[in-house]
Simulated scan of single mutants.
Amino acid sequence: MTLLATLPGHDPAAPALAVSGLHVRLGRTGIVHGVDYAVEPGRTLAVLGESGSGKSVTARAVMGLIRPPTGAVTAGSVRLRGVDLLTLPEETRRRLRATTIAMVFQDALSALNPVLSVGYQIAELFRAHLGLSRKEAHRRAVEVLDLVRIPAAARRARDYPHQFSGGMRQRVGIGLAIALNPQVIIADEPTTALDVTVQAQILRLLGEIQREHGTALVLITHDMGVVADVADRVAVMYAGRVVEQGGAAELYARPAHPYTEALLGAIPRPQLRGQRLAVIPGAPPDPADPDPGCRFRPRCGYGTDACDQAPAALQIAAGRLAACHEWERVTA
């Protein structure tokens, strides 16, 4: 029996991960405001949005990596198969990290310890969480490196992060995340700064792991093309809030929020060769000086007097949510 199964509230039928009403501050500034999303086992939820929209802060809060004095979760719940992680002692959350929920960080070079070999770093997971001997842990670490397609894994296990290319370091980061077969993986921009060929390899690797183990994947990205290829559902974030959610195919075909529509309109397409690319005017709001109304209003072409009030997330169809007073005009 796993540790998670022994905790209060555990429900095998519950979503793999469900975030509800999450509020997070950094210092004195609110960054995340009432985020809600969920992902089922074996499924992929893509979290979209510009830099600064709160995607990574939400992920770090889910992982328990935002703590005083730098920041804090001020409200909400983070349920892993029904178990609210925010109510657990820190030692219990630490034991769940990597074994049940794991994260692939955006910058693999910064996430890896530069003075320890990659094999040692992976082996430490097996020693700390499973109590394996040094020799057995090293053997398992080599298996993990081989699983994530590191050539000559036994030899490369002795190498240090700076001896790997960006794509190979990202594979090592994925290896750290999957080593103990977690139920949920949060991948924060796992293909950023990688060339297109390596991006495809990384996404294919994550997909293979997901299919083999039934892992739920939360993919944080601003790459709309990546989302179209791999996501089952999409949550679009803007200024710390989820402004639209829905099935990937339906959301792409018929966006219900002006921000989602603008993001899709800015995707370069072959048929637009030689034409000026569409852009979203203006800039995201200052989180330290929030607008009391709709935060996308200064950049929106659908604004009305109703936008003086912040819109609530409305269920506009089965499985579709949109936080916009004018969603019917957007979808028309």
Rank of each mutant, 00 (worst) to 15 (best):
K135C: 14
G301W: 13
N113V: 07
T87E: 11
V218Q: 00
R156V: 13
H129K: 03
A253Q: 00
D159E: 07
A216D: 15
R297Y: 04
P15L: 08
T29V: 15
V47R: 07
R295G: 15
T99S: 14
R156L: 14
L26Y: 14
A288Q: 03
P270Q: 03
G131V: 08
A288C: 07
V234S: 05
V218G: 01
G42K: 09
L116P: 03
G246L: 00
P284R: 03
L112W: 15
D289T: 02
Q170W: 01
L7I: 02
E136W: 08
L180N: 02
V115P: 00
R28P: 07
A177S: 09
P190H: 15
E250W: 15
T331K: 10
L314N: 10
P151T: 02
L88R: 14
A98S: 11
V24T: 10
I101Q: 01
Q210C: 03
Q245Y: 12
V279D: 13
L132H: 12
A323Q: 13
Q121F: 15
G64K: 09
V19D: 10
E143Q: 03
A187S: 10
L45C: 08
R67C: 09
L80Q: 06
G82Q: 11
V24I: 13
N181L: 00
N181H: 02
F126M: 11
P69K: 02
D289Y: 00
L65D: 00
T74F: 09
A128M: 12
A141I: 06
P161A: 01
H129M: 01
L277S: 00
H10N: 12
V226H: 03
V218H: 01
Y160A: 07
Q163L: 09
N113D: 14
M224N: 11
Y238D: 09
V35C: 08
E40M: 02
Y302D: 07
R273L: 08
V243N: 10
L272F: 14
E328L: 03
V196S: 09
Q121R: 08
L145E: 00
A18G: 06
N181F: 03
V32F: 14
I185R: 13
I186F: 10
G301R: 12
L147T: 11
M168S: 14
C324F: 04
V115G: 01
T92V: 15
V218E: 03
I280V: 09
A256S: 15
G71P: 04
R269I: 03
H10D: 12
A283W: 04
V24R: 05
G274K: 00
V226L: 04
G207W: 04
E90T: 11
T191H: 13
A14S: 01
R67P: 11
G173I: 14
T197K: 06
S165N: 13
S110Q: 05
P68M: 07
